[in-house]
Design a protein around this nucleic acid. Structure first.
Length: 468
RNA sequence: GGCCCUAUCGUCUAGCCCGGUCAGGACGUCGCCCUUUCACGGCGAAAACACGGGUUCGAAUCCCGUUGGGGCUACCA
């Protein structure tokens, strides 16, 4: 029997759920579901200063909204934090016991030591090195100390980085080699109960039996440090796969500066979760064939780590919009109506009308918000002026005839032959404009189908009246 | 600066591992068609192997170098 594959997503609740975080989570999710692995969510909230509960909730909300269900980890139910899985707690702030144990082991075995240098001393040293155009690094002052120097108190725990090369086989990039001599004796904790990132990650990946770490390329330089800690702890490290970064249009790392980075902001703009999932998957990965519009299930079936790209991918909103439109087209009108509801918050439309609207408008706009924005004819109709209505002449008679046809629900079968006889432009224009109140709109038959016979006839009759 | 990653149309990419198709698809752009408006849709066009050396009968594919781009360089993650 082969080992159970376990992957994890480990975001830090120090800001809004970033689209880059969501995409990295997605690759873990796709990998997990494709290979039948366990998908774990772990919240890395060791930084007490920056971590906030509201951000943690946003992460959970966003990942759930995207449709990613994690097998283990924290979640929110009825406003309360809950947890599922046997390797918890899954919040690093609740795992201090574990870190303390590992830290003590490292200290006892001589793989780590207390550093008594103050922040000020370190900063001064760094400034001096930079001045001298040297690489800023820790001088190793406290490395061989056996006890605290006179009048000094312990500041941080440092890892005693050994010499030699650290090599690992990245699943996506192949062999990556680092000269450990270039690595500092980096800090791994601010105190026995205050672990720092590189150390906490390793302790947790060991404890949670993580087998594959799939994360952004920006973590490549952390990997050798983590590998060294695994070795010092006598543990077998997981396999690593470093994803290409998501880039802004100027090819720099995606940031608030250059683009909208909040996942939930895209939801609020009317992007479908399935479309975002599809789009994110295409950022650094591509299926074997030419098809690009895929459902989450199809993505899971198609996904393999071998097809993940090595170089960064630019986040192209135009493509996102296109994929969103395609996903809107594919939706069942009933589901679309449900998704549309929040965008018609103040409109007081019945489910029936909204569903007919969804069916008629599918594919005419890129986002749900834009569909709603283009629905003024439904939600805030205003009778157009006579000049707009009667642009081709003779509109009154046509409108009266149309009103009669609409009243008996026969507008659709009536209009084509009637227009054939009286002139297409002369008929279609006033009928459509009267129905929509706008110069730009869907065709009159679609409009009437959504409006229903009663409303259609009323609008048509009122327009005819106006031309009197 | 140092270390690391990376390089096919403007963008996402197929092809590369196992050298030999007019270098394929999609988005975007442009044009034409459809059409009662706006969209949708249909058809078509322009558009790329970063550069320089090798290896080879033959290189986008293999090797070396150059250049470009990016990431990391914390008592953040």
């Amino acid at each position: 029997m082969s080992e159970q594959i376990r992957v994890r997503m480990a975001p830090s609740p120090t800001g809004h759920l970033h689209v880059g975080t969501a995409r990295a989570a997605l690759f873990n999710y796709l990998y997990a579901r494709h290979y039948g692995a366990t998908f774990i969510l772990r919240l890395e909230d060791t930084d007490q200063e920056r971590s906030r509960d509201e951000f943690a909730r946003e992460i959970v909300e966003g990942l759930e909204w995207m449709g990613m269900r994690w097998d283990e980890g924290p979640y929110v139910e009825g406003g309360e934090w809950r947890s599922r899985g046997d390797f918890g707690p899954y919040l690093q702030s609740q795992r201090t016991e574990t870190y303390r144990t590992y830290l003590e082991r490292l200290l006892a075995s001589g793989h780590a030591y207390w550093c008594y240098c103050t922040k000020e001393e370190l900063e001064a040293e760094r400034a001096r090195q930079q001045e001298a155009k040297q690489a800023p690094r820790y001088a190793g002052t406290c490395r061989e100390l056996s006890g605290p120097p006179e009048g000094k108190i312990a500041q941080v725990v440092r890892f005693k980085t050994p010499g030699g090369d650290v090599t690992f086989a990245d699943v996506i990039r192949g062999e990556i080699k680092t000269d450990a001599a270039l690595l500092d004796d980096f800090a791994i904790a601010k105190g026995l109960d205050v672990p720092l990132y590189n150390f906490a990650v390793v302790a947790d990946d060991i404890e949670m039996q993580i087998t594959h770490v799939i994360r952004g390329e920006d973590h490549i330089s952390n990997t050798p440090k983590q590998l060294l800690i695994f070795a010092a702890l006598g543990a077998t490290p997981p396999r690593y796969a470093h994803l290409p970064l998501v880039l802004a249009a100027d090819r720099t790392k995606l940031s608030k500066r250059t683009s909208e980075t909040s996942l939930l902001a895209y939801r609020d703009q009317g992007f479908l979760p399935s479309a975002l999932v599809n789009f994110f998957a295409l950022l650094g990965w591509h299926p074997a064939g030419d098809r690009e519009v895929l459902s989450p299930d199809e993505l899971i079936a198609e996904f393999t780590i071998e097809r993940v790209q090595k170089s960064g991918a630019v986040f192209d909103e135009a493509k996102l919009r296109h994929i969103n439109r395609e996903h809107i087209k594919l939706m069942d009108p009933r589901d679309l109506a449900l998704a549309l509801r929040p965008f018609f918050a103040g409109a007081n439309l019945s489910d029936e009308v909204l569903e007919r609207f969804a069916a008629a408008e599918q594919g005419r706009a890129d986002t749900l918000a834009e569909m709603a924005a283009g629905a003024a004819w439904l939600t805030s109709y205003e009778l157009p002026g006579a000049d707009v209505l009667d642009r081709q002449g003779g509109a009154r008679a046509h409108l009266e005839a149309a009103a009669a046809a609409a009243a008996s629900g026969r507008l659709e079968s009536w209009i084509a032959p009637y227009a054939e006889e009286h002139g297409k432009k002369e008929v279609y224009w006033p009928v459509r404009v009267a129905l929509s109140g706008s110069e730009k709109s869907p065709d009159p038959v679609s409009l009437a189908a959504v409006l229903g016979p009663e409303e259609s006839a009323a609008r048509l009759a009122a327009a005819a009246q106006k031309l009197q």
